[in-house]
Nucleic acid binder design. Structure first.
Lengths: 355, 355
DNA sequence: CTGTTAGCGCTTTCAA
DNA sequence: TTGAAAGCGCTAACAG
């Protein structure tokens, strides 16, 4: 018995429209059809054949097979984007920037959400590697854990050896191209601003310290206060989830522990929103009794009540720059680092310290 | 001269670690290595060989080649998600739900943002088809344009013929499995609520009417008012971008056109935020002078000032249900439609009509 | 349980 | 310019 699909091109019998069925229909070779339909630039094929191939493809409703192309070319047209959580506006802003760049390069974007699980981050990186992603942007802040760091470095190295490029948002303690948001400086500026307003009882509502972002922002505050001759007491730093509800809980706890605070630095805007809610519940006037500063300047920051004073980070730009770094520039001898400064945006949630 | 890579397995020389180099190293056949490393379940290979293969893969640092697998299996492990804009909380919530389901099925998610451009939507669908995505979720609301609709239907049909599954959020006027958010009913309920509060001068601030979502919500309002013996005048419907700034602009315009309005229905929460901002600028007290209702119940709705009364849509659930529909159920004879009801959430931005 | 082998659909020399 | 043919890395019969 003759096997149904023993010959190249036989697939056409099956129903699937392949390049060779297009070639056959157009009366040209497979190679020519490939050159017409996928060849870069478009030159190098006579106009007559060219037209016939297009017509055949059109009539047959040909759709190229991405995986096959990726296999033959040993490189795909997808880039990976790894975030903690797509529903977190911080990450969706970065994603928006990155996607714009991907679009400009005609690449598809594979998005993975780790929900702040380092293991998942590593796993997704491996899968992106398996998918032969051309580049990967790790937008989630690193975790300050040596074991994790070395495994991450190994994955990254493997990925790069395989021809892929990797960029990070934040310096994860591994050598790779990175965009470095001004966490430290921005936080320091916020702390100094409060100090200037006369606040002396400053507290911090922060996310998990294992997150690099959190650690850096906290450091910035600490250093700034030290520079001012003050000190941030451990009891004035309350840690919780890096979310609105974490911010609310932490603030409530803080108010219990230290009813005298006059200023709260929330390490992101989500937590700041929670802090404002808690303060409202506790009937503490903002900023008359307590001032609040956030971080990131999410779109909704200005709509909080009172409008949130915060440290602005150009998130979309960060996503753009990071992806550009690996898509538009050759790998250098040493990893590149692009600093992106943070700026203080003064609104209505801060005021002079009550006396 | 002997060609460097004339024999299968020769690739090992090149540096790339392939399945056959693993097999060779483990002293087993390619098939066995494949069964151990990628075979589902894991049975059917003796423990001894099994262990040797794992060891070899480990030592060599083997990473499977996704495209090659996809080609051989004629099916990939990626699903597509098409949205208007990842930075829009409406879509990022849906995306979060969908990604959770994808994760449960061990699938990667390719996200495409169309920025409300129908052409781009079609293009991405084609590319997802080329990537042999297993399923695609079109989360962006359809466009009420017949030309677009028929082309969309054609793409979807092609995609399905190819073995892929498609789900929609909203009925785009094409036959495909869909999750149908209660736009109409939710909007109607909001309108009736305002009516009960005594409002008789109700206006609508809406996004582009070419969007199905907008059209349906608007219809719901219109019908509800008609049912109450009232009518929504064209001059009381102001159209703008489906964003915060669109909401602000439209509200300003509305206030100029019709200073007497006592209630504003904004067709999404983003626009409602803009409406509140505009009202604040114009020194109109909310809800004492003007009541405002939004739509979606984004996480930030409760933090607006005053806290926004809005129509809640369980967005993450919508994303989940939609993806489940095509990942967990066999295609039916007819397209399925899963209705998801909207519910009114009463907060502080609405109150009795002033007299 | 294990190995052989024929493709999957496309790209890319190499020759003509 | 165009075509022939050799893979890309992996899966899945099929045969032992």
């Amino acid at each position: 018995m003759v096997k149904a699909r023993s010959r190249p091109g036989a697939a056409a019998t099956t129903g699937a429209v392949t390049l060779s069925s297009v070639a056959e229909r157009a009366g040209v070779s497979l190679a020519t059809a490939s050159r017409v339909l996928h060849g870069s630039g478009g030159r190098a094929v006579g106009d007559a054949l060219r037209a016939r191939v297009f017509a055949a493809a059109q009539q047959l409703g040909y759709v190229s097979n991405g995986p096959a192309q990726a296999l033959a070319r040993a490189s795909s047209s997808v880039v990976g984007l790894v975030v903690h959580d797509v529903a977190d506006p911080y990450f969706s802003a970065i994603a928006a920037g990155a996607m714009r760049v991907a679009r400009a390069h005609d690449l598809m974007v594979m998005v993975a959400a780790t929900f702040r699980d380092p293991e998942l981050e590593l796993e997704y990186l491996a899968r992106l590697r398996a998918q032969r992603a051309r580049a990967v942007l790790l937008a989630g802040s690193g975790f300050t854990d040596p074991g994790y760091t070395s495994r991450l470095a190994a994955q990254i190295e493997g990925f790069e050896r395989q021809g892929g490029r990797v960029a990070l948002v934040g310096q994860h303690g591994v050598p790779a191209d990175a965009v470095l948001p001004g966490h430290r400086e921005g936080a320091a500026e916020a702390a100094r601003y409060l100090w200037e307003l006369g606040h002396r009882r400053i507290a911090v509502v922060c996310g998990p310290r294992a997150l690099e972002t959190v650690a850096h922002r906290l450091d910035g505050i600490r250093e700034a206060l030290r520079g001012l001759g003050a000190d941030l007491a451990e009891r004035d730093v309350v840690e919780a989830d890096f979310t609105r509800s974490g911010g609310r809980t932490a603030t409530l706890e803080l108010l219990r522990r230290n009813p005298g605070v006059t200023a709260i630095l929330a390490l992101n805007d989500l937590m700041a929103a929670g802090a404002l809610a808690a303060l409202r519940e506790e009937r503490r006037a903002v900023p008359a009794e307590v001032s609040v500063i956030g971080f990131d300047d999410l779109p909704q920051a200005a709509d909080l009540h009172p409008a949130l004073t915060t440290v602005r980070l150009p998130l979309e730009e960060i996503g753009e720059r990071a992806l550009r770094l690996i898509l538009e520039e050759e790998p250098g001898y040493a990893p590149r680092a692009v600093p992106v400064p943070a700026t203080l945006v003064m609104r209505a949630s801060t005021g002079p310290a009550p006396r």
